[in-house]
Every structure is written in C-alpha cells, then in structure tokens.
Nucleic acid binder design. Structure first.
Lengths: 239, 239
DNA sequence: TGTCATAATTAGGTTATCCTAACACTCCCC
DNA sequence: GGGGAGTGTTAGGATAACCTAATTATGACA
C-alpha cells in the first residue's frame, strides 16, 4: 500500500485551492461548472482554466467532460469544503475579535485562508465556540467536511416576512442580468420579503442594509434563488 | 492616500520578502550577507540566490558587490523591517490570544506574515497594546520602520545572573562552529549566566528552556555575541 | 608568487501559472 | 439540417522560482 491517499496528496497550491472553491460554488446547485464561469469567477482567461482543469482531473480532484464542464470528485469536494471552513471561520474571527466589518473581511480571509494551519483554524473555532454560521449567515462546514445543506427557494415562493440571502440568479440573459445588477439584486445581497400581490403578482422586498424597496415581477422572481437566513445570527450586510 | 506614494512599489512576492528578511538578519551586525549564508538560511541552492540577488539589485532593494555579498538599501531595509514587524506581532498575538507556545508559533507566523494586510497587523498591535517586544524578547519595529537598536555583548563580558539571547557567533572556523552547534549554542538560544571563574576563566551558563549547563572557555566566550533580554515577561505592555 | 580549495556565478533546464491568437466543437434557428 | 454565434481547447510564449552541472573569481599559504 504505497499509492495511498496520503502520499497521493502533495499540498495543494494556492491556485488549486481557489479553483476548487470556485468549482464548488458554481456546481453547488448540482450542475457542472463551465470553463467560462470559472474563468469569470477567478478573473483569469478561459485557456488558463482549460489548462488547470486538465491537471486537476489528472490528479483526481475533479471530473471533466470536455465541452460540458466540471464537477468535484469526493476528494475535490473535501478539499473545497476545507477551504470554505477556513474562509468562514476567518471571517467570523476577524469580525468578532478584530473589529472588522463585513466589507473588509472577505478580502482579508481570502488571503489568509491559504496561509493558516489546520491547528490555527481549530483554535479560532474553539475561541468562537464552534460556530455554525459565518458573519454572512452562511453555514460553516465541520472539520470533518460536512456542511449544512441549504436548499434554495425562488423569491416568487418565499414566504412574506422572512429574511433571505440571494444566492443564485437563474438566467443567463444579459439584459435581465444587467437590470438585476442595477437594482442591486446580485448574489450575496440580503433582503426581507415585504409583501406579494395575489394572482401571481409581483413580490415586494426590502434590501437589508439600506431598507430600499424593490418590486420584482413574477418572471424575475422565479429565477432569483434565495436561502432563508438563520433567525438569530450575526450577519446583516451584504458582502 | 499614502498608497499613492508607494505605487512605485509593485507588491513584493513571498520569496522576495523572505530574501529581504534573511539579508536583514545576516547583515544586521553591519557587514555583508554572503550568497552561501543566504542560501543556507532560506534552504535553497546558491545559484538560486545569485539569480534573485541580481533581480533585487536591479529593483533597488539591495546592493550587490559581486563575489563579496549584499546589503539592503534604505528601501530594502524598510521592506525587511515591515516583515519583521509582521512576524513579531503575529508571534505575540498567537501566543497571547490563541494559546500558542514558542515552539509552534514561529512556523505559523512565517506563513501568515506574507498574507496579512497592514490593517490586520495594526489591529493586532492595538489589541496587544502596541507591544515593544515579541515572545522571544526581540524588539518589534514600529509601523514607521524604526527598531530598537540592540547592542550585543560578548558572553565573556556578560554579567553573572542576567539572561541573554545568543545572537551571533563571531567565527567562521568550521571546527569551532561544529563544536558550538553540538553544545546547542546556536543563534536564537536563550541562556542565563550562572558564574564566571576569575583570571579570565570560563563562563558557566544555563540554557533556558532545558536548564542544561555549559562551561564555555574564554576564547569561545569572546566570540559568542549576546543580547540582554528585557527583564520581565513577554509582550511588555500586553494591554 | 603560483596553486588550489572554496565560494560565486553563468548556463541550461523544470514546473506552475498565466496570457493571446488560432482552431474546434455545440447547438440554436431558420 | 447546415450556418454561425458563442464556448471550449490547443498552440505557443512569458515570468517567477527553483535546480544541477560547469565555469570563474578570491584569497590563503606553501
């Protein structure tokens, strides 16, 4: 037994860690992550993604269907969840113990997550009382690599009065995407559902940090996938 | 706003930061740092150092006298002191707030120092009460880049009863160096001076973590350069 | 003062990551 | 069911670090 898991795992590079995280986020709703989506998320050119994808699938971290996209293997998913745990614990620690606000914390955690040891992360986690949610309300994977499954609800179906985070925009249409971005309706934004008109009418929401209201027609409300926020919790503002 | 003043400085890579730190330590007693010393300290091959030295002197961070060695320029010294400030504040923070001991803290800080932002370091520094010394007793450079000058004393002259850190071994003789290393007398080691025999006799010391005793003859004691340790505990003003 | 061990440098090569330009595949749509 | 628009991939390079092997400079000493 020599080709075991341990020596098959030379430490991942920063880049590899970033690719795995991006692929995790892009395929979390159960599909494939496409080359161009990954490229956009990591701000690199598509050919760079093709090259990396080749290496990652050779090392068994992802599965690649040419011209279709990629998915994480169990091994890749484990590595991605480890990075997400690091990121979210760092965000929470920086917020709770070092006075960061939601704005500044993401970039700092993004760099630190590649440099901290497992040991340090677990020390921070105990200092925080083994938290379950980060400052944005996102669930923190356990050290064992389990994560609370958060199912998404279309905004059109979201109960009035509840608080949500917009997680996915389910359209590729540039005109719709541009409009939504102008309205501030981008993944990560927090909102409460104020009211909904009957007979498939529009949904009215309030953006959470600002209190600004938006009226969203049913067609768009059906493609805005939201995650209900844990009731208590830190987290209030968007990233 | 001061970012504008510094945009002549494209961000340094991790490697560059490590080279500058090594050169700072090796030339702190006012000489040149040699290629082979740098290579040994960073655990790379000498040709790698030659290559890096060429790049660093082209970018004005060091001055290179071929076949002689290198020294930091004012700009390089500033960058090195910034890294040392980061390292020492990290060591102190990890020790004070996250339960690290002297053993584990160095490696962790070594990785984190390249990833933290200036902002985070200053937040840690305030959390620690703007400390002046790290857990090893080494002075922490100020954010402005000033460092307490520590003058060194030969062990042969060090007053009995005081505590010192061995900082420099002032000989190149391989036999002497090998002997000293066998005795555990390498830079960084902590010791207290137990007694000294009269008429230029030997000095007896106790190593600090272990309590092991060593008797050092006057010839060697004259080349062991030590820094007196601040009396009380670490951190000085740790809040 | 010439020899030679040692240290430093140059030459040439590898790996990881990224890029641009050129080519290949898919699939929608008429 | 054949053309394209739009994606994805291959080709060919660049850069930052590193390495080993070969070459060159320095300085101690016989």
């Amino acid at each position: 037994m020599h080709a075991t898991l341990r020596d098959a795992t030379p430490p991942l590079t920063r880049s590899v860690e970033d690719y795995l995280k991006a692929i995790y986020h892009l395929s979390s709703q159960g599909g494939f992550a496409s080359t161009s989506e990954i490229a956009a998320m990591l701000d690199v050119a598509p050919p760079s993604v093709s090259g990396m994808v080749k290496r990652l699938s050779e090392t068994g971290l992802i599965e690649h269907v040419p011209y279709r996209g990629v998915q994480l293997t169990a091994q890749g998913r484990r590595a991605a969840l480890k990075m997400i745990r690091r990121h979210r614990i760092l965000e929470l620690y920086l917020t709770q113990h070092l006075g960061y606000d939601w704005g500044g914390v993401h970039a700092e955690a993004e760099r630190l997550e590649h440099a901290v040891s497992d040991d340090l992360i677990e020390r921070m986690a105990s200092g925080l009382g083994q938290p379950q949610y980060d400052p944005h309300g996102d669930p923190i994977p356990t050290a064992a690599g389990e994560i609370e499954e958060t199912e998404l609800v279309a905004l059109a179906e979201a109960p009035v009065g509840s608080k949500f985070e917009l997680r996915q925009v389910g359209t590729q249409d540039p005109a719709r995407l541009r409009y939504l971005a102008e309205q501030g309706l981008v993944p990560g934004v927090l909102l409460t559902v104020s009211e909904r008109q009957p007979f498939n009418g529009p949904t009215t929401i309030a953006l959470v940090p600002s209190g600004d209201r938006r009226v969203v027609g049913r067609e768009l409300a059906l493609v805005l996938w939201c995650r209900e926020m844990p009731v208590e919790g830190y987290g209030a503002t968007a990233r």
